[in-house]
Amino acid sequence: MADVFRALDDETRRLILDELAVSDGKTLFEICSLMAGKHGVGSTRQAISQHLAVLESAGLITTERRGRSKFHYFDSEPLAAIIRRWPIVEKGNQ
């Protein structure tokens, strides 16, 4: 679980997850386009690639080959595990 928190402790990685959570199945090129064009993140392609590797090893994204290209998908399971460990308590409903 520590790797999930470490993966989330970076604004660029959170922005990548924001984009994949809205619509996933994106190539590295598309993610780089969104980071640069929409979020003004000027990271190199290599840096974005490393961010994706951190997210993947934390289980927050998965990759799949379709044809000859590699696509990235958001996986919320590690976040669900956090909620299961510390369930959300509704206040003021007693």
Binding site: K26, T27, L28, F29, E30, R45, S49, R68, S69, K70
Partner: peptide
């Protein structure tokens, strides 16, 4: 070309 296509680079 394989490396470019894998990363979605035109």
């Amino acid at each position: 070309r394989d490396a470019l296509v894998e990363d979605g680079i035109p």
